[in-house]
Design a protein around this nucleic acid. Structure first.
Length: 871
RNA sequence: GCGAAUGUGGCGGAACUGGUAGACGCGCUGGAUUUAGGUUCCAGUGGGGUAACCCGUGGGGGUUCGAGUCCCUCCAUUCGCACCA
């Protein structure tokens, strides 16, 4: 056997090129369906092609790659695809800044980022690559949208948007800064415009119930989704009133129908028809309604604004008491949510309480809890306690508890045909219309004679012209006659094409299914999808825990109901990775703006215990302030470019550091020293293998009769294998897997025995270490596996199994506590019974000293672990 | 404001099922090699105490033979809130 010629030095660049060339030549990552083999579909959330990779991408895709390679070593047929979430706002912003069409900017970025991904050595099947801005992809967005129109799942209604009155354009929430347009600084207004919606609420019940089918999703994500869907049972009912002699009804919804006798006013949104009517002859109210329409539409803003209101002068009739109830306009009531009107019970709702106090409205207690005293001085939590409360001052309902009162009141309202119980969802239908250029066109044609007409299937895709350059004043598609002007599919007369495009969340709601159908020209997905789907492991940022994941689950269910796919859920197992953070350094000049410094430009001063004294700028030696830890961002100048990291240390070091610094679900703090440490470990590993193979091939021996030290090392080798298998396969704690391989290699270094027997044990330890690390640092392991004398490539090797014989132990160390405090350790034979363990524990010198002849009350023995002696 | 999470040495983290707190790595200290620095190697490293020991997991309280882990409460930080992706 010719020994592999191994460089003495670890040369990452050469090692990584060799391994990547090999994988490329062998088409190692091509995924081919094979019904005889168990498949494993490992998917990472695809990137937005923003320009270059950031550390969050590197972390995300390394986690995915480790799982992919591990599953492959388990013998599964793996698929790991990659693509581009290519439509979106940043391309338009870049276009405005540079005068380059979004398409060109996007494709340039894709080319660069693809090169970066390849340099990291991810086991991706690039033949399945897709970009959502390709007509071949987005035509199926349009196709399924048309199916949804047919089913009534897609429909049109008005929605509220942020409107910049100067640029005459709709703004994204992100473009509204402190209530003003980001480019113009103009105070943003709310505006009602027609939009297309997808009736995700039709699936609310199933989306909620099917969370049960996702036991491998993080509990917190399921909880967040359940809260977001927000199922509540309540009562929808009406306050009748007369308007210009007509009988009208003001509808509201409440989850606290038991407090209905405490209603002292109602509040409606500024856009509510009742408010509009009342403002006709009331200039003050009209002005107030205009004021309410200013500001952003963001939920977080609305929840924190100062609550303001004004009476409409209109009264409605209480449906049960018949008393008049005044109606107010409230800036905190949303037209787009529920009925756009609410009943107000100031005694038992905190917001209503403060509103009533502010405007001097009556507060009527109708719920009591025990002997608690109700007072108008300050809000008390128990006022809203439906669990412990019962009705008072409520006539026939007095004494009833929450659910009995709701039942009785709902029945009475129903008898009067003024209301009934109803299930209510917090979830709202998904508005998908965007008044933007760089997105998937909505396939609708507006005809003066036929109305809104769907584009015919045979005319799909509606192709987006790629040569537009937006200028910030509305959608440039409106200025493209060649796009807008068309013939009505129904009557053939001249008509106008819809210029709104789809929310990019549509694009990302089904890309995983398209990857699985490699080349499907005639359908949204083909038969191959049935083999690969569902995704076995999905990996992405926690920031997508609600919207993207909920929309994808919804879209998948619609595809299922259209007969395209089988199965209720697209993603079986989910891993939400934490953010990548770095320290923030800055100086605050006496005048002028804060100046941020990249951590690479800063030197930390420490005392002789390693404690931090301060930080100075390397270039001038003057102190800088620390702004704590934050996500890597341009504005805080605390980003680290993955490219420079790869160039300096290589992909394996980058991957190792990312996996070692924190468990995947937690935030990860950047550390240059930590990266250097990862690199040091790889050099040490290389040297260890090099020193070993230099002595020639290790002999094949029988492991049954080994000296104690060799036996210990062999046991540790197999224990480590068992732990790493569990850490990567089940727990997904790559950091602890790496730590235990480090421990094993520390033991190999210390194992000072040159005998043939020892060489064989060392060979096994090194082989296992290389295979265990192969999913994490695949390039160096590719080289080391060859160096250890194997003709087949590491990528094709099966994951080893621990040997029970090697794991066997004769005695165990048991910890002995006295009154719960650690006082000694004793060695006991593995098969020792509880009595024997207790006897050995009490016989220990240190333990006997602490017992000191005092009476032993109780002895607790935890087998194989510890003994606690209670005095 | 609402929803979700996190908090352990100088730092990142480990402790998986209520059972040895601080694995592994970084930093720091001392030493060796080299000596210009770095690299590499060895030893030490939660705090206090001469020691026996004592104290220690964001703060306060509780359950238990035993709590970083469970319960209550408070504080701080991070993420999401529907047109950023």
């Amino acid at each position: 056997m010719i020994p592999y010629k191994m460089d003495e030095q670890y040369l990452p660049e050469k090692t990584e090129k060799d391994a990547q060339d090999y994988w490329e030549r062998q088409h190692s990552f091509k995924a081919v369906p094979d019904p005889k083999r168990e498949k494993f579909y490992c998917l990472s959330m695809f990137p937005y092609p923003s320009g270059k990779l950031h550390m969050g991408h590197v972390r995300n895709y390394t986690i995915g790659d480790v799982i992919t390679r591990f599953q492959r070593m388990q013998g599964r047929n793996v698929l790991q695809p990659m693509g581009w979430d290519a439509f979106g706002l940043p391309a338009e912003n870049a276009a405005m800044a540079n005068g380059v069409p979004p398409a060109q900017w996007t494709w340039d970025n894709i080319a660069y980022m693809k090169k970066q991904l390849k340099s990291l050595g991810f086991a991706i099947d690039w033949e399945r690559e897709l970009a959502t801005c390709e007509p071949d992809y987005y035509r199926w967005n349009q196709w399924l949208f048309l199916r949804m129109l047919e089913k009534g799942i897609a429909y049109k209604k008005t929605g509220t948007v942020n409107w910049d009155p100067v640029d005459q354009t709709v703004l994204a929430n992100e473009q509204v800064i402190d209530g003003r347009g980001w480019r113009t600084g103009a105070v943003v207004e709310k505006r009602e415009i027609p939009m297309y919606y997808l009736a995700i609420t039709r699936y609310a019940e199933e989306l909620l119930a099917d969370l049960e089918k996702l036991p491998e999703w993080p509990e917190r994500v399921r909880t967040m989704q359940a809260n977001w869907i927000g199922k509540s049972t309540g009562v929808r009912f009406a306050f009748p009133y007369k308007l210009d002699g007509r009988e009208e009804r003001l509808w509201v919804f409440t989850t606290r129908a038991d407090t209905i006798m405490g209603v002292t006013f109602c509040a409606v949104a500024a856009e509510h028809p009742l408010a509009t009517h009342a403002a006709r002859n009331n200039p003050k109210l009209a002005a107030f309604i205009e004021e309410c329409k200013r500001g952003s539409v963001m939920e977080a803003d609305l929840a924190t604004i100062e609550k303001k209101g004004m009476p409409t002068g209109i009264s409605v009739t209480h449906p049960l008491t018949g008393e008049p109830v005044p109606v107010w306009v409230g800036n905190y009531v949303l037209m787009g949510y529920g009925e756009g009107a609410v009943m107000a019970v100031p005694a038992h709702d905190e917001r209503d309480f403060h509103f009533a106090k502010q405007y001097g409205l009556p507060i009527r207690q109708v719920i009591a809890v025990g002997s608690e005293k109700f007072s108008l001085d300050a809000w008390q939590e128990w006022y809203a306690d439906k669990e412990r409360g019962h009705c008072v001052n409520s006539g026939k309902y007095d004494g009833l508890g929450y659910s009995a009162a709701v039942d009785a009141i709902a029945a009475d309202l129903k008898a009067k045909s003024l209301g009934d119980k109803q299930v209510m969802w917090r979830l709202r239908d998904w508005g998908i219309s965007r008044q933007r250029y760089w997105g998937c066109p909505i396939p609708i044609i507006h005809c003066d004679h036929c109305g809104d007409v769907p584009v015919l299937d045979r005319d799909l895709p509606v192709v987006l012209p790629e040569d537009c350059v937006p200028d910030g004043t509305g959608n440039p598609l409106n200025k493209r006659a060649d796009f807008v002007n068309c013939a009505c599919p129904k009557c053939g007369k001249p008509a106008r094409r819809e210029t709104d495009t789809m929310d990019t969340f549509v694009d990302s709601s089904w890309y995983y299914a398209r990857y699985a159908s490699r080349r499907s020209d005639s359908a949204m997905v083909d038969d191959e999808t049935a083999y690969w789907m569902p995704v076995d492991q999905y990996i992405g940022g926690i920031e997508h825990a609600i919207l993207h994941l909920l929309y994808s689950r919804f879209w998948w269910k619609v595809m299922r109901d259209t007969g395209l796919v089988k199965g209720d859920e697209p993603f079986m197992r989910l891993l939400t990775q934490g953010m990548v953070l770095n320290e923030i350094f800055f100086r605050k000049p006496a005048s002028g703006r804060i100046q941020y410094f990249n951590p690479a430009e800063v030197e930390i001063k420490t005392d002789d215990k390693g404690g931090r004294l301060g930080a100075v700028l390397k270039s001038d030696g003057q102190p800088v302030e620390s702004g704590g830890i934050g996500t890597m961002s341009k504005s805080k100048n605390n980003g680290v470019d993955p490219q420079s990291l790869i160039e300096q240390y290589g992909a394996d070091t980058a991957r190792l550091f990312m996996m070692f610094a924190a468990p995947p679900e937690m935030t990860l703090e950047w550390s240059d020293e930590g990266v250097a440490g990862a690199s040091r470990f790889l050099r040490r590993l290389w040297k260890l293998v090099h020193d070993h193979v230099r002595q020639g091939p290790a002999p094949k021996i029988d492991f049954t009769a080994l000296p104690e030290a060799a036996k210990d090392l062999r046991r540790q080798t197999h224990q480590t294998l068992a732990k790493v298998t569990d850490d990567i396969g089940r727990r997904r704690t790559f950091n602890t897997a790496i730590a235990s391989v480090m421990e094993l290699l520390n033991a190999v270094s210390k194992f000072d025995d040159a005998s043939a027997l020892a060489r064989a044990v060392r060979q096994e330890a090194l082989e296992f270490a290389v295979l265990m690390l192969a999913p994490i640092v695949p390039h160096i392991c590719h080289a080391l596996w060859q160096a250890l004398g194997h003709p087949e490539a590491a990528i094709d090797v099966r994951w080893p199994k621990p040997d029970d014989g090697a794991l066997k132990q004769d005695s165990l160390e048991i910890v002995v506590q006295v009154n719960g405090k650690l006082r000694g350790r004793v060695s006991v034979p593995v098969q020792a019974g509880e009595d024997k363990v207790r006897e050995l524990a009490l016989a220990d010198d240190a333990v006997a000293r602490h017992v000191g002849g005092k009476p032993v009350k109780k002895v607790i023995v935890v087998p194989g672990k510890l003994v606690n002696i209670v005095l």
